[in-house]
């Protein structure tokens, strides 16, 4: 069974068509990069996958649970890191994690245990009692990933998680998530417009102007399109110079 399967998804805001006939799947334990320029429809796609609103057409299934029929069961298996930071700045890192754990129904003991475990895993345990306001951008992102993992999801969604980070910060974050994917078998959907975040073994979905232009293994992207490099292939798919 696929961790995430998106079938023929379409959505418009008023008369503006944002997504059209989008279909792809993320297999269990795989890292899938959703590649698209700004305005490609990535964030709308994330909103539909997380059930923020329903799609006008098509369906989203998370481990076989339909998002519009049984959203709670689907959401329980999903960890999400949104594009915009969603931490409470006045609360400490630990308090933010406990809040999330409570929303997912974890008791106090397991909430404490898991928060220590996840923050340690992401190298931010020493900041657990600091207000989020005092943390750097990279540290905040790591706290958000730790939070998304609190309830032990099998699917992790990240919407441009490296936006606003410097190059070492981006590399570190990417490394952390790849380790999670490898060690815990978590399926990952990672939206980005940075080509350098791809590795040869990743699955790739190229989204442009609301439609899927190409999907497959990253190392086949260039060959498939007869391009000299992945960058050239991506440019030809998205009509850029």
């Amino acid at each position: 069974m696929n961790a995430l399967s998106v079938e023929n998804l379409g959505h418009s805001f008023g008369s503006r068509r944002v997504l059209d006939g989008v279909s792809f799947a993320v297999a269990q334990g795989r890292m899938c990069i959703l590649l698209g320029r700004n305005g490609a429809g990535k964030t709308t796609l994330f909103s539909l996958i997380t059930g923020l609103y329903h799609a006008r057409a098509g369906s989203v299934h998370v481990f076989g649970q339909a998002m519009d029929v049984n959203p709670s069961a689907a959401l329980a298996q999903m960890g999400v890191v949104f594009q915009l930071p969603t931490l409470d700045l006045d609360l400490t890192a630990g308090e933010n994690l406990h809040y999330h754990a409570a929303l997912h129904g974890l008791d106090k003991a397991s909430s404490t245990e898991r928060s220590i475990h996840e923050l340690e895993r992401l190298d931010v345990l020493d900041r657990v009692d600091d207000p989020v306001r005092a943390l750097s951008g990279g540290q905040r992102r790591r706290v958000e990933i730790a939070r998304a993992l609190m309830h032990g999801p099998s699917l992790l969604l990240l919407d441009e998680p490296t936006a606003g980070l410097d190059v070492p910060g981006r590399r570190a974050l990417e490394r952390h998530v790849r380790e999670l994917c490898r060690e815990r078998g978590i399926a990952v959907l990672w939206a980005t417009h940075f080509l350098e975040e791809l590795t040869a073994d990743d699955d790739v979905v190229v989204l442009h102007q609301g439609t899927v232009r190409w999907a497959g293994r990253a190392d086949r992207l260039a060959a498939d399109l007869g391009a000299a490099s992945t960058a050239e292939a991506f440019a030809s798919l998205t009509g850029a110079e």
Binding site: S72, F82, T86, L103
Partner: peptide, 18 residues
């Protein structure tokens, strides 16, 4: 606007309850 509402609305609970 800041996004933390999304966190609340993606909790695995009925939306009216949240």
């Amino acid at each position: 606007e800041m996004g933390s509402m999304r966190l609340l609305l993606t909790a695995p609970l009925p939306r009216w309850y949240v």
